[in-house]
């Protein structure tokens, strides 16, 4: 499925998001907000009105970056994705309540998230795990950080402006999931190899 990456600048309309299909490579520009285990629990435990404007139309990035203080601000040193399936219990609610454009992570997510993507016209984008340096260089600016004291560096909400951030659509708003397809094929091969 070789294809030319599509350049996408946020904010992106729901119509554009609904038009994306699995396998499509993207170069994403705009605001992404990192959130992982503590962040998702925090966003779902109670509705956080002060996060509503920040998250609406933005991508939530499953990432716990390495950050270094530089003067008054911060520099991103390494910032690849973390495994997404840990957020499966929370993700659908985050999508519904905060109206995010979608999620960036790795490893894909389950059926509950897939249904939420369909319902709200959002997508799941996959970044290359372990490509920390390469992805950090696509961060143009660290806009702000929230809950740093409470959560620590990897778990805090980092608001990042990214430019041409390379991702692949692996779960779309039409119910498609590359992960479901690969899993089914792998399961068939597993049974064949083991004679089950």
């Amino acid at each position: 499925m070789a294809n030319e990456p599509l350049r996408l600048r946020m904010p992106v309309s729901e119509e554009v998001l609904r038009g994306l299909t699995i396998g499509q490579e993207l170069l994403l520009s705009g605001t992404v907000v990192t959130a992982r285990d503590m962040g998702h629990k925090f966003l779902v435990e109670a509705f956080r009105p002060d996060f509503a404007d920040l998250l609406q139309g933005a991508f939530v990035y499953h990432c716990g970056p390495i950050m270094v203080r530089e003067g008054e601000g911060w520099r991103v040193v390494s910032a690849g994705p973390t495994t997404s399936n840990r957020e499966e219990p929370y993700q659908a609610e985050v999508i519904a309540r905060y109206r995010i454009a979608g999620v960036i992570g790795k490893g894909g997510m389950g059926e509950k998230t897939s249904r939420a993507l369909q319902q709200h016209g959002a997508v799941y984008l996959h970044a290359v795990g372990g490509a920390g340096t390469l992805l950090a260089r696509r961060v143009r600016r660290v806009r702000e950080v929230r809950m740093l004291q409470e959560f620590g560096v990897p778990e805090a909400f980092w608001v990042l402006e990214v430019e041409d951030f390379p991702v692949v659509v692996t779960m779309d708003a039409r119910g498609g999931s590359l992960h479901r397809e690969v899993l089914a094929a792998s399961e068939a091969r597993r049974k064949e190899l083991l004679g089950l």
């Binding site: 070789a2 396998g23 716990g64 290359v128 490509a131 920390g132 340096t133 260089r137």
Partner: peptide, 30 residues
Amino acid sequence: AEGGTAWNVLDAMIRNVEMSREAGTPICQD
């Protein structure tokens, strides 16, 4: 297959390894 998604992913990994070595930054943030 060159240019396919699997090739692109491996290529990104290799480029990242090269960049990390040159810049002295962690290959992966984890």
